[in-house]
Each structure stands twice: as C-alpha cells, then as structure tokens.
Amino acid sequence: VSALKVESFDEPKTLRLAVDTPDGLEEAAFRVPGFLCSKTLPPILRSVCARGGIDGSASVTIDDRDGRRNEVVEHAKKLRQHVKVTAFGSTLYSTLQEKAADIFKVFEDNSHHINIRPSDRKLWDGEICFDFHSRYFTERKHVPSVKHAPFPQEVDPLHILEDLKGEDLLHLEENDVQYCEKVYGDDGSVSYVAMDPKKFQVGDFVELTVTFVCHPVKKNEFVVIPTLRALALLSSELRQQSEQRLRESRDRQG
C-alpha cells in the first residue's frame, strides 16, 4: 500500500492507483483468489426487453422505436459482467477486507473530494464474499475522443452488444475482462492462457484481478469502485469431484 500513488486520468475522468515499475508508472492491480459462487458472464446470446431488467443471462434487446432509445441506453450502460467469490470462512477474506480499507484510505489521503461508497460486508452462505463487476459500455460523453473497440467474438458472438451501443455508448479496452486459465509449468513458470468465458462454472477455484477506480459522481466528488479486470481459472477439480459424487449418489438412488 505504501508504494501506491493516486494518478488523475482523463477520458474517462478518473482517479486511479499506480505503482512504479521498471517500465514506468502502471495501474496497480490486485489479485483475489476464491471459489465462484455466483456469476453473470458472457457470451451474450439472447435478447430480453429493456424494461424487463437484467436477468442472469445479461442479455438485452434493441428497441429504439417510440422514443425508447434513452430508456435503452440507460439500461445498456449498466450491463455488466459480474462474479462473486467465497473462501468458505478462510481468514484470508478478513485480511483482504482490511487491505481494501487501507487502499480506500490511500484515495482519501490524496484527495479532499473522495466519497467512499460504504463497503457493506457481504455474505454468501454465512461467510464473507466479494463481488466485482465490469460494465460492457462507457458513455461516449465521458470519452469523446476515444475510438470504439469491437467486442471480442467470445463475448458478443451474435453482435447484440455491438448493435446496441448506438451513438451514446462505446466499448473500450478497459471495459473488457480478460478470461484465461492460469497454467503452472514443470519448471515453476506461470503463464495465462486465453479461455472462453462460457467455460467458467460455479464452484471453480479462480483468481480475480481487480483495480480500484475512482469515478466522478458530482462536481469534485468521486466514488471508489472496485473493477474486475481478469478472471483466471486455477482449478475446477473440487467442482468436478462434487459433480461426480452427486451423479454417483443419484445412480445409487436409481
């Protein structure tokens, strides 16, 4: 935490944490291990009514007739990829909560205008959990000179998001979440291999990479939002074991 600096960015106007590296100043990212207990992930495969809200499939519809475009934009800009992880009561998560408070304090100490969003202590099955998300879109008014980046094929194979963005929304690289598998080599090396997001299942052991980004909410007021940058599969072994035991149990019961 002592190495963190608060840097101001334009387009979108944000405050971000940075660290000095041999390659220069880079945005600070944090890794959180845990077991997936809830997820709303791509691909986007079907459409639902904008007024109907976001269900588990995170799908949307395009309907700009009868002046409904504003409503669609308001709905679309909140669409997000989301994960929730648990450590089943491991003391690690209590420690991480304290670390997160330290990180928030770095923002507070470096600005007079930081409005810290109350971090509710969230529980899943009675134990501390964390959830992180990343929106698919950024509003063009916040990034007027930045070029739109097409959605990856594995995220938007039917071009539903692409057709939805219209003139008001953009997809930036920073709206992307990197989906991958963490692979350990025999020589102790570590690499991350791209993985289709549809392969992630509840019960998988994963590593999240998150950043803390301060977004403006009012004039000279910001709010800190933990943002999901990457989701890496560490192991699906325990999930598969539990599924196997469930199958065997059902077989025994006929």
């Binding site: 291990p33 009561g89 509840v202 019960g203 052991f205 539990s242 599924e243 469930l246």
Partner: peptide
C-alpha cells in the same frame, strides 16, 4: 455448489495458493 462440495478442501486449496 452442490451438497458434495467439500469446503474443507476448498479452504486448503486457498491456503496452498497463498503459500505459493
């Protein structure tokens, strides 16, 4: 997660991750 998911094994896996 189904009823056969072993939380003890899960906590052990997290501990192993931290050690590495």
């Amino acid at each position: 997660m189904n009823r056969f998911f072993d939380a003890n094994d899960a906590r052990a896996q997290i501990a192993k991750y931290i050690m590495n």
